[in-house]
Amino acid sequence: MKEREAVTITGLVLFLALFWLGFLFHQSPRFAGSLWGGVFGVSGATLMLVPLAYLIIKRVKTLKQAVTRFVSMRTLLAWHIYAGVVGPIFVLFHTGHKFESPLGIALTSMTIIVVLSGFTGRYLLGRISQELKEKRTMLDGLNSSYQETLQRLRTCCADKTAQLKPFDGFFSRLLAGAFFSVQEQESETMSIGLRAIRLSDAIADLEYAIRTHDTIKHVFTWWLRIHITLSMVLYALLALHVWAAIHFGLRWFS
């Protein structure tokens, strides 16, 4: 997420995470069935369908090709993110902080869980992807410097490079100063050689960090599946809630 978007969404998610606690101080048993309660309920439910539409468009190739002629996937993703947060906020307004029925409690709980899981996954996955990109760029630069250093070492100091081989480990590098005089360490041969060793060490550390980030990113593929599953449960509860409201009578305009 871009910085401004991240700040806005973070603020909305924090508001959502705290707003539901309002039932400790305020309850309006009749608000959900009032006109404004109905407006918030219908608006929130409609906005909550936007992420579902995004999911369908993203996975149906022909539909995706048709829609992206007019709207980019980046724009659709932004709509998905904002609607996926603002919609649940409207739904919480709709409740009037009245959490009594099992269905209402389950729907409210699942709404908050889905929003938090989506926000957490989206934010962390974005951060991981950005860090991976930066680390791979750094790795390319280090590899380039390492190859240049090796070439210089082979060209001007081929007869002395063997002296450095025993000191290519972490602990052995710490002892290198005890085996080489100051003059040797300051010579061109040793200077280039030690630079090569330090570069190789930095490359190894960076490659390990990249593998770790790749592993975390792979784990987050399971997060996406879980998030989608939770979303489907949420939509099922939402449909059941709408059916119950219609079946037992609407009081929104009474």
Rank of each mutant, 00 (worst) to 15 (best):
M1P: 06
E3G: 04
R4H: 05
V7G: 00
V13K: 03
F19G: 02
W20F: 12
L24E: 12
L24M: 10
F25P: 04
A32N: 13
G33S: 14
S34T: 02
G38A: 06
F40N: 14
F40I: 05
F40P: 08
G41V: 11
V42K: 02
L47I: 08
V50Q: 12
A53S: 13
T62E: 06
L63T: 02
L63K: 02
K64I: 03
K64E: 08
K64W: 06
Q65W: 14
V71T: 08
V71G: 07
M73A: 08
M73G: 04
T75V: 03
L76P: 00
L76G: 06
A78D: 08
W79D: 02
I81W: 00
G84N: 00
L92I: 12
G96K: 03
G96E: 04
K98F: 15
S101K: 11
S101T: 15
L103K: 01
I105C: 07
L107V: 15
S109P: 03
I112P: 01
S117R: 13
R127W: 07
R127I: 07
S129M: 10
S129I: 15
Q130C: 04
K133P: 00
E134G: 00
K135E: 07
K135L: 06
L139D: 09
L139K: 08
D140N: 11
D140M: 07
N143P: 01
Y146P: 01
E148P: 00
K160N: 09
T161F: 08
Q163V: 06
F167H: 01
G169M: 03
F171D: 12
L174P: 01
L175C: 05
A176F: 13
A178N: 13
A178R: 15
S181H: 05
V182W: 04
Q185H: 06
E186D: 13
M190R: 14
S191E: 11
I192K: 10
I192R: 10
I192C: 10
L194H: 12
L194V: 14
R198I: 09
L199S: 05
S200L: 11
A202S: 11
L206P: 06
E207K: 15
E207A: 13
Y208P: 07
Y208Q: 15
I210T: 07
H213W: 04
T215C: 09
T221V: 13
L224M: 12
H227C: 05
A236I: 14
L237F: 04
L238H: 01
L238K: 00
A239S: 10
L240N: 06
V242P: 04
W243L: 12
A245N: 11
F248M: 06
G249Y: 00
W252N: 05
W252E: 07
